[in-house]
Design a protein around this nucleic acid. Structure first.
Length: 626
DNA sequence: GGCATAATGAAGTCGCTC
DNA sequence: GAGCGACTTCATTATGCC
């Protein structure tokens, strides 16, 4: 079997890896926990290897175990919950049980959740407490920024090697793992010797053969973290292979039915009878903190990489659009996901990709899920009769200051009464939902500010500020962008597959949602070829690239139609191909808000989807050597 | 000219009732 | 399953102000 490795001209063979219990996800988790011990976990008594082995013998799925671990639950709690619930229950039942433990622990612990969180990341307790006192326990992002800006923070391996001056936190569980791995042998000046690295890896639970091969493959100058990444990639690649070659009976939870297509000159689907329907709930193959996770699917033979590709567009299109998109993307059913499961605002989108779907993880810290958590200052002014806990989709237009005033005028006559009459409530609520207003004062419902939208969508603060962008343009660009946490969740599977970084072809880049997602995942971007028509958007990506001290190369094109097949081949010749082709083509002619030209994929802007297909096909052909 | 604001519905989904 | 109403939606364009 092979794993795609862009640092080599050829695929990297890893057939020699032994398939042993050591390579199971449970074992991998054991290794991770064992290496975290003493650094990340100071008070817990960790489960022993015997304990987890017992779980396997009980018949418990190691995938579920890995999933729970990746959700951030300690091994000790997972083991305890499994033993209590038994191995044959829904994952959600186990999560509920663990949640009870968490609640108990919180009640009895002198330390706050925030303190534990940042201590686990390896920060000094004194600094953590000070940062929490300064910024408040709820403001995790500000705390993370403060800690990362401390001179002491630079002593942290991740702060030196991974973090690059960005003014917002991009830590995650995996990062913690890397941090901790860097804490022992690799700090020893003598640790660059192969024997020492191999011993360390063996100590972590890998076989000597695996460790030797990893050192041999990765070279002598790589550190222990990269070697571990390599080994994890090998494990993942094995699962990846299974995912491709052993179709499971499990199907995506969305109710995918095929329909008959009548367009001339388009590839005809084999069993098209019914339209693609949107799933309810819209969680695709699963989202964090929700039951119903699916970790395997079967991809059509033609869809298998390289390269990986990731296509996005609005879920709510005119009828037949997603059938056409799917048909042009190798008959892969769309994964429909509403970003309300990742942040406070809805964002219903369809994603077609050929990525693995197991071992996804969420970037940390996760965004706030409810209005009150995301806008704590609004709680004081929020009327009881406004029952919203989530915001609607962030669009390209926003409400005006005059609208806020009209709402104030409508409410003021009823200041002395418990609440306004129902018809006034109805008017205000309708406007609030329509324009995504939040309460910022008495009788004062205002639209979101651009920086609030940036936060909700997972971008760094002030990402779209400056660069010659007006306020109106910021709204438009943000309304057209990815929700970073959602996309990062899907792309997270690439982290262990490409430990040395990836080459990215980014089409319809916009303000760089894909790039920000990869950066927050700490996946090195060796090369990004970006295509974006808007000059101000290109400037934003360029600024992001510079401000985050990216060491890779950024090449920007303005018009996708100028990216000819010869140009693509030339770039691939020079840089060795693309590992990921990512993009969401224009939705103007698909989006529900368009009252003028919602004409489907044949519209002036949305027809550029076919350019995505053209370019993807050129890359695929080249990567396959045909 | 640049920018903010307001006016412009329909398509599709979902939940409920019968 | 049909019918109905409620609800949501990566938007476009004209207008007025500075």
């Amino acid at each position: 079997m092979v794993i795609w490795n862009n640092d080599d001209d050829d695929f990297l063979e890893i057939d020699n890896f032994q398939s042993s219990p050591r390579s199971s996800p449970i074992h991998a988790m054991q290794c991770r926990v064992e290496n975290l011990a003493g650094v990340a976990v100071t008070t817990s008594s960790l489960s022993s290897p015997t304990e987890t082995t017992d779980l396997v013998q009980m018949g418990f799925s190691d995938e579920v175990f890995a999933t729970l671990f990746d959700m951030g639950f300690p091994v000790e709690m997972i083991s305890r919950a499994i033993k209590e619930t038994g191995p044959n229950v829904e994952t959600s039942v186990i999560i509920d049980t663990i949640s009870k433990y968490s609640t108990d622990c919180e009640a009895g612990s002198s330390k706050s959740k925030a303190i534990d969180h940042f201590l686990a990341m390896g920060f000094d307790e004194e600094k953590v407490v000070k940062a929490i006192q300064e910024h408040g326990e709820d403001n995790m992002e500000a705390i993370a920024n403060a800690l990362l800006s401390c001179p002491e923070a630079k002593k942290l391996p991740a702060a030196v090697e991974e973090e690059d001056g960005i003014d917002w936190s991009s830590s995650d569980d995996d990062t913690n793992y890397t941090d901790m791995l860097n804490s022992d042998d690799e700090k020893d000046p003598n640790s660059n010797e192969n024997g020492s690295k191999i011993r360390s890896l063996v100590k972590m639970g890998f076989s000597e053969l695996e460790a030797s091969l990893a050192v041999e493959r990765c070279g002598e100058n790589v550190d222990i973290a990269e070697l571990t990444d390599f080994l994890c990639a090998a494990q993942m690649a094995r699962e990846f292979s299974e995912f491709y070659t052993e179709p499971e009976e499990q199907k995506p939870r969305h109710n995918i039915k095929k329909r008959r297509f009548e367009s001339k000159g388009e590839p005809r689907s084999s069993v098209d009878d019914e339209p693609i329907r949107l799933p309810n709930p819209m969680i695709g193959f699963g989202v964090p903190n929700e039951p119903g996770l699916i970790t395997h699917r079967s991809l059509p033979e033609l869809a298998r990489g390289p390269p990986f590709f990731y296509y996005e567009n609005v879920a709510l299109t005119p009828k037949g659009v997603w059938e056409t998109i799917s048909r042009h993307l190798f008959e892969i059913p769309p994964e429909f996901v509403d970003s309300k499961y990742f942040c406070v605002a809805a964002r219903k989108r369809g994603y077609i990709h050929n990525l693995p779907i197991n071992n996804r993880f969420q970037i940390q810290p996760p965004p706030k899920y409810t209005i009150h958590d995301a806008f704590p200052l609004s709680k004081r002014w929020w009327p009881e009769w406004d029952k919203r806990t989530k915001l609607n989709c962030i669009l390209t237009c926003t409400g005006s200051a005059q609208l806020t005033n009209r709402i104030r005028v409508a409410l003021e006559p009823y200041n002395e009464e418990p609440e306004p009459p129902k018809h006034v409530q109805r008017y205000v609520i309708d406007q609030c939902k329509k324009w995504n207003l939040v309460w910022v004062g008495k009788n004062k419902a205002a639209p979101l500010e651009p920086d609030e939208m940036e936060s909700i969508l997972g971008f760094p603060k002030n990402h779209t500020r400056g660069g010659g962008m007006s306020r109106t343009e910021r709204f438009k660009s943000l309304g057209n962008s990815f929700q970073v946490d959602t996309v990062a969740y899907h792309l997270s599977v690439l982290k262990p597959i490409f430990p040395h970084g990836i080459n990215v072809l980014s089409l319809f880049t916009g303000i760089g949602g894909g790039e920000v997602a990869l950066h927050r995942l700490q996946i090195k971007m060796k090369l990004v070829v970006s295509v974006e028509i808007s000059k101000v958007n290109r400037n934003i990506l360029k600024d992001f690239w510079e401000q985050t001290n990216q060491t890779g190369e950024l090449i920007e094109f303005s018009d996708i139609q100028h990216l000819t097949n010869d140009t693509i081949e030339g770039l691939m010749e020079k840089y060795g191909g693309f590992d990921l082709v990512i993009g969401g083509s224009p939705c103007n002619n698909l989006a529900g808000g368009n009252r003028v030209s919602r004409v489907g994929l044949e519209g002036d802007q949305s027809s550029l989807f076919f350019e995505y297909c053209r370019i993807l096909e050129v890359v695929r052909a080249r990567m396959r050597g045909s």
